[in-house]
Design a protein around this nucleic acid. Structure first.
Length: 662
RNA sequence: GCUGCUGUAGCUCAGUGGUAGAGCGCGUCAUUGGUAAUGACGAGGUCGGGAGUUCAAUCCUCCCCAGCAGCACCA
C-alpha cells in the first residue's frame, strides 16, 4: 500500500499501481469526469499513470486553466501530426510543442508533394475533428531507447530516429499511443483521450517554413500553426483579440493617417510624411529636453567613414555583411565599362554611432574631472538587414537612434546606471507604458575575463537593486547567455495597451571598445586610465518607437503628439468668418489646428475627422458665432461641450503641452 | 538569406488568352445641412519589372524585384 495525500490534507491508503483516475472516481463521479490530469508531488502527469510511491496528489481540472491549456495544446499538436500523417502518408513528423496561444507541429511533407500550404488546412482541421470525435484513448508506454530508434527507422522517420539517438544511451523513453494505430515519442503528459478536447476550440492559422532544430543549415520543414483553447468561447475571444491587434497595425494606421510610406525603391527606409514627421519632431524635442536636463551633450557625427576606421573598431571584420559599403571614387561616367573600378578604397555608412563618439572623446586630453562625459546623438544609422527581417517601422535599414555613450570611471558606473534607470522610468511612464527590466548575462562566446564579466554583471545588477527596480513587481529577471559578446545588457521591455511587450531601452557597460580605439583619460594620479563606456538608448530608434506608439495608442495619440490637434468645422458657410477667427486664435496659442469650411454636411465632417483620429473637433454654426463659443466634440466621446473660446484655448493649450513641461 | 503566398486606379479588392471593372477617395456642379457618409456628373490604370510560348499575354512558363506570414538573423 502507498499513502496519497490530497490538497485538503486528507490521506488515502491505496494499492501500489492505483492511478489518479481511480482516486478521482473514488472521490466522486463528477470529479472523475472533470479530472484532466494530475499533479504528483508538483509534477504534471497523466491521469492514467499508475502511482508507485507515497505522494502528494492534486487533480487538475479545466478550472486549473494554465495546466489545462498546456495539456490541451500539447494534445492538439499530437492530433495535428496524426491528422497530417493520416491524410498524407509518407509525411515525417518531427516536433510539436505548445505555444502562448496554441500549438504547432513541424513536419516534412513527402517528397512527392511540395511543402504544405494554407489550402491544406481545412482538410487537416476536419481530420483533427474526426480524431477528437473518435475519442481515442491516449496511452503512455515506456520503450527502451534502442528499440525506439529501430521503430522510427523502420517507419522511415529519420528525424525522430536522429532525435532519439541523441538522448542518453540506455534511457527509457516514453511514447504515447493514440488508440492503437498512431504513436509519437513524447515526455507527456497527455489527456486520457482525444475526446477530452473540444473540437470547436481550435483553428489552424498558418503554415510556414522552419528549420529542423532551428538551424538554417538543416533542411526546412513545414510548420503548421494553430491556436487552441479549452472551448469555443475562448477561441472566439482570441480571434477577436487578433482582429483588434490587426486594426492597430502601424503599417495600416500609418497609411490611413498619412504618417509615412515605404516603397520598393527604398525598401527598409521610411518616407516620413508631414503628419508623421510632426510626431517625430515632438519626440525629438521631448528627448532633447530630457537629455539636456540629465547632463548630456548633443553631437552630430559623420554618416560615412573610411573602412580603416571600421577595421579598427572591429566592425569591418565581424559585421561587414550588414554594412553598406561605398567606393571612395568618382564613378565612371561613360556609357561603356563598369561604373566602379573595384580598386578604390572602401568607405561605409555607419551601422552604429559608438566609434564616432569615441573619436570625439579622444580629441584633446581628458581628465578624470571631465568624467562622466555623456555624449548624445540622434544618430542616423544604416544596417543592411536580411530582407526577410524587414517589417514596417519595426525593423528597417535606415534608422535614427536616441543614442548616447557615457564615458566614466569604474567607480561612477553604478551611479550612472542608476540615473539612467530613473530617466527611463520617468519617460516610459509619461508615454503610459509599464515595463520590466531584464539583465542579459554573459553569452558562451565572449570577449574578456570571467573576472571582468563578474564585475560588469554585478555593477548593472547593483544599480538596479539600488534604484529599487529589481523586484518581481518590475518583472526583474536575469537571462543567462543573452548578453552581447562584449558586455552584459540591461534591457527595458515595455508592455503596451493591449499587453504585448517590446524591448526598447538598454544600457550596456563596455570595456572592449575603449580599449580597441584607445580612449583614455588622465587620473588623479597623473597616469592614463581607460574609461568605461556605457552604451544606452531609451527609444531605441525613432522609427521603431513611433511604430510602437502607433500600436500602443491605436492611432489615438495624446494631444501633444497628435499631428493635427484640433479641427474647426463649420455647419454653414455663414460661420466661415468666425471659424477662421477661432482657427487663427488657436494657432496663435500654438495649437496645430485646421479649419474645415468645406461645403459638406456636419455629419460628414464629424465622421471624417473622427476616422482621422483628430483629438478635438470644434463645431461652429451661427449659434456659436453669435455667442463667441465653440462646441467641442472630443475623440472617443459622443457628447459635445459648449465653452467660450477662451476656455477652449486654455483647455487645448494644457493638453497640447508635453507631459514633461506641463 | 530560407519556405510558402501575394503584386490590377490614390486606397480596398473583383476579373478575363482577344489591351479592364466596383466601392471609397479625387474633380466639377447643385445642395447651407446642428454631431459618424447629400445627390448628379466626370477624370483616373503600358494589370510590379524583364524574357519566353502564342496570330494575340494582365491572364500560361521562366528569371528578377518588392510586400505578407513564419523561420534564421537583430552588433
Amino acid at each position: 500500500m502507498i499513502r496519497i495525500t490530497l490538497p485538503d490534507g486528507t490521506a488515502r491508503e491505496v494499492a501500489r499501481g492505483t492511478t489518479p483516475a481511480d482516486i478521482a472516481a473514488a472521490i466522486g463521479p463528477g470529479l472523475a469526469k472533470a479530472a484532466l490530469a494530475a499533479r504528483v508531488d508538483g509534477e504534471l502527469r497523466d491521469i492514467t499513470r499508475p502511482l508507485e510511491a507515497d505522494a502528494q496528489l492534486a487533480l487538475v481540472t479545466s478550472r486549473d486553466e494554465a495546466d489545462a491549456l498546456e495539456l490541451a495544446r500539447h494534445d492538439f499538436a499530437h492530433i495535428l501530426a496524426e491528422a497530417v500523417q493520416g491524410l498524407f502518408p509518407g509525411t515525417q513528423i518531427t516536433f510539436g510543442p505548445s505555444t502562448d496561444d496554441g500549438f504547432y507541429y513541424d513536419v516534412m511533407a513527402p517528397a512527392s508533394r511540395g511543402p504544405f500550404t494554407m489550402d491544406d488546412l481545412p482538410a487537416i482541421e476536419e481530420k483533427m475533428r474526426d480524431i477528437i470525435r473518435a475519442d481515442k484513448p491516449l496511452r503512455r508506454e515506456v520503450m527502451a531507447r534502442d528499440a525506439l530508434i529501430a521503430t522510427w527507422q523502420n517507419a522511415g522517420e529519420s528525424f525522430k530516429a536522429e532525435w532519439a539517438a541523441e538522448l542518453p544511451e540506455g534511457e527509457e523513453l516514453s511514447v504515447y499511443w493514440s488508440g492503437n494505430d498512431w504513436m509519437d515519442m513524447c515526455r507527456g503528459p497527455h489527456l486520457a483521450s482525444t475526446g477530452k478536447l473540444d473540437p470547436a476550440a481550435f483553428k489552424l492559422t498558418r503554415v510556414a517554413g522552419a528549420y529542423w532544430r532551428g538551424d538554417q543549415n538543416n533542411p526546412q520543414l513545414s510548420r503548421i500553426y494553430g491556436t487552441g483553447w479549452l472551448n469555443k468561447k475562448q477561441l472566439d475571444a482570441r480571434l477577436l483579440r487578433l482582429e483588434e491587434a490587426a486594426k492597430r497595425d502601424h503599417r495600416r494606421l500609418g497609411q490611413d493617417m498619412d504618417l509615412f510610406h515605404l516603397q520598393q525603391e527604398a525598401h527598409g527606409s521610411v518616407f516620413w510624411h508631414p503628419n508623421g514627421y510632426l510626431i517625430w519632431r515632438e519626440l525629438e524635442a521631448y528627448m532633447r529636453r530630457a537629455i539636456d536636463g540629465a547632463g548630456y551633450k548633443e553631437v552630430k557625427t559623420p554618416q560615412v567613414m573610411d573602412a580603416r576606421q571600421w577595421e579598427q573598431s572591429g566592425h569591418w571584420g565581424k559585421y561587414r555583411a550588414n554594412m553598406f559599403v561605398i567606393p571612395d571614387e568618382v564613378p565612371n561616367v561613360d556609357d561603356e565599362g563598369p561604373v566602379i573600378s573595384g580598386e578604390a578604397d572602401w568607405m561605409a555608412l555607419k551601422p552604429m554611432n559608438c566609434p564616432a563618439h569615441v573619436l570625439i572623446f579622444r580629441q584633446g586630453i581628458k581628465s578624470y574631472r571631465d568624467l562622466p562625459l555623456r555624449i548624445y546623438e540622434n544618430g542616423c544609422c544604416h544596417r543592411n538587414e536580411p530582407h526577410g527581417a524587414l517589417h514596417g517601422l519595426m525593423r528597417v535599414r535606415q534608422f535614427t537612434q536616441d543614442d548616447a555613450h557615457i564615458f566614466c570611471r569604474e567607480d561612477q558606473i553604478v551611479e550612472e546606471v542608476q540615473a539612467f534607470c530613473a530617466l527611463a522610468d520617468r519617460i516610459y511612464k509619461e508615454f503610459g507604458f509599464t515595463y520590466s527590466i531584464k539583465l542579459a548575462l554573459r553569452p558562451d562566446q565572449r570577449f574578456g575575463s570571467d573576472a571582468d564579466w563578474d564585475k560588469a554583471e554585478n555593477e548593472l545588477r547593483d544599480a538596479v537593486v539600488r534604484a529599487g527596480l529589481a523586484t518581481p513587481e518590475f518583472g526583474w529577471e536575469e537571462l543567462p547567455g543573452e548578453g552581447a559578446f562584449y558586455a552584459p545588457k540591461l534591457e527595458w521591455h515595455l508592455t503596451d495597451a493591449i499587453g504585448r511587450t517590446w524591448q526598447v531601452g538598454t544600457i550596456q557597460s563596455d570595456r572592449v571598445l575603449p580599449e580597441r580605439l584607445d580612449a583614455s583619460y588622465v587620473g588623479e594620479d597623473g597616469a592614463r586610465h581607460r574609461p568605461v563606456m556605457l552604451h544606452r538608448a531609451i527609444f531605441g530608434s525613432y522609427e521603431r518607437f513611433i511604430g510602437i506608439l502607433i500600436e500602443h495608442y491605436a492611432g489615438r495619440f495624446p494631444v501633444w503628439l497628435a499631428p493635427v490637434q484640433a479641427v474647426v468645422a463649420t455647419i454653414t458657410s455663414e460661420a466661415d468668418g468666425y471659424a477662421h477667427d477661432v482657427t487663427a486664435k488657436l494657432k496663435a496659442a500654438g495649437i496645430r489646428v485646421e479649419a474645415d469650411t468645406r461645403n459638406e454636411k456636419i455629419n460628414y465632417k464629424v465622421r471624417e475627422h473622427s476616422v482621422a483620429k483628430v483629438p478635438h473637433l470644434l463645431v461652429v454654426g451661427m449659434r456659436e458665432a453669435e455667442e463667441g463659443k465653440v462646441a467641442i466634440r472630443s475623440l472617443g466621446s459622443d457628447g459635445q461641450r459648449i465653452m467660450t473660446l477662451d476656455e477652449a484655448i486654455a483647455m487645448l493649450s494644457h493638453e497640447a503641452t508635453p507631459p514633461d513641461i506641463r
